[in-house]
Design a protein around this nucleic acid. Sequence first.
DNA 1: GCGGAGCTAGTCAAACTTGATTAACAGGGG
DNA 2: CCCCTGTTAATCAAGTTTGACTAGCTCCGC
Lengths: 213, 213
Amino acid sequence: MSAIRLLVLGAVRQHGRAHGYQVRNDLEFWGAHEWSNAKPGSIYHALKQMAKQGLLHAYETAPSTAGGPPRTEYEVTEQGTEEFLALLRAGLADPEAGTDALAGAIGFMVELERAEVLALLNERVAALRQWRESVTEYYTPDAGPGQFGHIGEIMNYWLDSADTGAEWTRGLIRRVEGGAYTFAGEGEHFVGVLAEGQENPYATGVPHPGDHR
Amino acid sequence: MSAIRLLVLGAVRQHGRAHGYQVRNDLEFWGAHEWSNAKPGSIYHALKQMAKQGLLHAYETAPSTAGGPPRTEYEVTEQGTEEFLALLRAGLADPEAGTDALAGAIGFMVELERAEVLALLNERVAALRQWRESVTEYYTPDAGPGQFGHIGEIMNYWLDSADTGAEWTRGLIRRVEGGAYTFAGEGEHFVGVLAEGQENPYATGVPHPGDHR
DNA sequence: GCGGAGCTAGTCAAACTTGATTAACAGGGG
DNA sequence: CCCCTGTTAATCAAGTTTGACTAGCTCCGC
């Protein structure tokens, strides 16, 4: 289901209560529209869907201050919090969740305790190593390599991605072990959220230099 | 539009004329269902869609030998060939096309001439370098790094991905320059396609060891 | 004091993706 | 011979994603 649910739940959670446009702005602030499918349509859709599923509670509120159609505010339910934490953990530990889930999860990792984050990242490294082994075993049988011709380059690419991904993860582990950032239970942590009324330096329409999908 | 169109066009092209199940089998043979969204539903959908758009010509053929509902065969039209080549070139040269488009394009790169492939890959490296520059410029203003807290790790991750992706591409360039593989105009090249009647070692249902999305 | 540029907030149709399900036939066991 | 399983081939409904569009409001210049 991609990473939107994680991103949207996380954004709403950090505000306590938020409407769609706020979420949209936060995600843009994080550059999420560049590395995930966090486009307006998807965000509003995710909000409605998750409200229907009980992960969010919807408040039909005031006909909006400051122009525009009446806006709905959302709040994360208990069930939504569980889902959020599950997605967060999966994003960090499970390579199959995809790279956008990883990126999103990194954005919220400080909501967990340092020790748990380290455990999850180590899990990820282990999963990558295991996947690598099973693939090389599978694609490099007795016949020797080269039997796949240039098709082997595809496999080569995925193996390389797994290797470099694992290497990067190890780097992050070292930084976190070294005391970087402030995690849950360690005092006020950095909140990457726009304060009420703060202008968004990356507002929609302002083209980022060198936009990258 | 993801990489399916490229994959489906390529598969049909290699057969000359193919029905959905053949395409599906080829893509599974390449492991495409693991690194792209090449699932049955998507394949059949792509075939119909592209037939409607004139990229493929559909033949309502025989009520199928060997069981199953009557099958439709497809053939790539001239317009479809153009689209195929465009997607192929974009997949190789443009990082924004995504990694699955790259993987698919690698699978078909031998349909182009060696010199062109090298040019396209160099374009990719250049695009990655340029993207990297614009991002670092954007995210590392005067205030110095660290202003983003742990959010900076997300950027760090994408930069690392770009760097390692470029490095891998350079490796491929060296191999191709070194004479690896057989490209268009160089004689019979490796065809990663299942011959008529050949059994598919990766048939649906046989679980791959360590499946990775 | 008005007109349009631009922001705020969200909707919508069309396309795409997914996983389950259908449907036809082949072959083997009892 | 008849049922049951497996294979071949494809469809379908439900959910997602996309990009374009709507619509209210403010503010600025003229």
